[in-house]
Design a protein around this nucleic acid. Structure first.
Length: 403
DNA sequence: CGAGATTCATGTGAAGTATACCTTTAGGCTTAA
DNA sequence: AAGCCTAAAGGTATACTTCACATGAATCTCGTA
């Protein structure tokens, strides 16, 4: 790096006009004051949750809809509103939000309860205790006072897929052991098939109420974007038709509003970095690339070494052969990779599971097929565009200490 | 020719093992009275 | 004697291994038309 010019660089950076007015408005963790086109859904949620203001346990809610349809946002928004009413009146309501997808945070029963406890400010060992004990700690903690506990479980399908549906059963049964505290669950899932594959008893208790969030259409998306653009950007920094194009992109991808907003923000960041005075359509295309790349890189690099080695083998093989890959081939190469990078190779049994996990992450598509006389295997197809694949392969190479 | 039987390569479930971490307990040491 | 530290014992969750059996369509076999 040229270090002498750095002060100058920062100076000129400060002088440069930013394209943003209030950048946080289009950042992903921002909760807007109004959520357009979700009045009906929010009304439903509010109706169901309202009894908790009278200290009655509301029904459990199961919310589903594709990603970026405002499920999480609506749930958080509604519960926040309830809290706002409840707080000045001293109504004891507590809302806890847990994202079950976060690997190594809340993807097992034990870890879920642990993260709930963390919300209460109680820290418990990450391992070593019986799950039963952890429940008891929780019970003891919340039983001290009368209250309604609303537990929002985001991406609940991931949790059930890994830890089984007993978790939800246990949670609902917790109510029987608690005299003064009532727990209501809000399960959020973007897997529409999920609810059909769980124990009917669990199902009926989880989805006492079901709410479906339909995807936004292009016009609605445009509306949402415009709403935020007004506050987020300075006037006239967006090229004509940019918002429309952005909405169209996202509508094509099953009406994902989160994606549309992210697309716009990243495009603006790119424009800013290249010291352009306007955000142009061209920046939008670059942003689309960058988002996808960052997403993949993020998933890949937070994965444990073994998974990375497996993925590296898959990528390498995919680049060599044009046809689909099979588990056996991957395992052979994987073992080689392991010895090169000083990793202890796992068994094929385990690799098979890892391939399943990678499939769940959406990095690859693995389908079990039968090749008849030539056995049964998984057909693996990489679900990442070529150029990004190369990019990621290089990163993996470094991570795994290969040359 | 067609219905079964066979076969292959690996999926998949269950049970066992290793590891990392936890609490409890008991003994030994220190310290202050 | 009280307090504190340490090591050992006994426990759990999780990632992984081992073992054993299940799968499912291409291919083979063999009786029959």
């Amino acid at each position: 790096m040229v270090q002498r010019g750095l002060t100058n660089f920062f100076e000129s950076f400060l002088q440069k006009e930013s394209l943003f007015r209030e950048k946080k408005v289009i950042q992903s963790n921002y909760t807007p004051d109004v959520i357009p086109h979700r009045d009906k859904e929010i009304g439903l949620v509010a109706n169901i949750l309202a009894p908790c203001l009278r200290l009655e346990r509301p029904s459990n809610i199961f919310i589903y809809g594709k990603t970026g349809t405002g499920k999480t946002l609506s749930a958080i928004y509604t519960t926040n509103q309830i809290l706002e009413v409840a707080k000045p009146k001293g109504i004891p309501i507590k809302v806890i939000y847990v994202n079950c997808k976060m690997r190594r945070v809340a993807d097992t029963e034990y870890r879920l309860i642990t993260s709930v406890l963390n919300e209460f400010g109680v820290s418990v060992p990450s391992t070593g205790l019986p799950t039963e004990d952890i429940y008891n700690v929780l019970i003891k903690k919340i039983e001290t006072e009368k209250m309604i506990l609303i537990l929002v479980l985001d991406e609940i399908d991931q949790l059930v897929k890994k830890a089984g549906d007993g978790v939800i059963y246990n949670l609902t049964r917790l109510n029987e052991q608690l005299a003064d505290v009532q727990i209501a669950l809000i399960g959020i899932s973007n897997d529409l098939m999920f609810i059909d594959n769980i124990d009917p008893r669990v199902r009926s208790s989880l989805s006492e109420e079901e709410i479906v969030f339909p995807p936004y259409n292009a016009i609605q998306l445009k509306n949402i974007l415009n709403n935020r653009v007004k506050r987020a950007f300075k006037e006239g920094v967006l090229e004509q038709g940019l918002v429309e194009k952005c909405a169209a992109y996202a509508a094509r991808e099953h009406g994902d509003a989160r994606r549309a907003l992210e697309l716009l923000r990243v495009a603006a960041e790119i424009a800013e970095r290249s010291s352009s005075e306007k955000v142009k359509i061209d920046h939008l295309d670059q942003a689309e690339q960058k988002i996808e790349r960052d997403r993949v890189i993020d998933i890949v690099t937070t994965q444990p070494k073994q998974q990375q080695a497996a993925l590296y083998s898959i990528f390498l093989l995919a680049q060599k052969t044009k046809t689909a890959l099979y588990t056996g081939d991957v395992y052979t190469l994987y073992k080689e990779i392991c010895s090169k990078s000083g990793l202890r190779p796992l068994t094929q049994r385990r690799l098979s599971d890892i391939i399943g996990e990678l499939d769940m992450l959406g990095i690859i598509n693995a389908k079990v097929i039968s090749k008849g006389r030539f056995g049964r295997t998984r057909e693996i197809i990489v679900a990442v565009p070529q150029n990004i694949q190369k990019n990621v392969t290089r990163i993996l190479e470094q991570n795994l200490d290969l040359r």
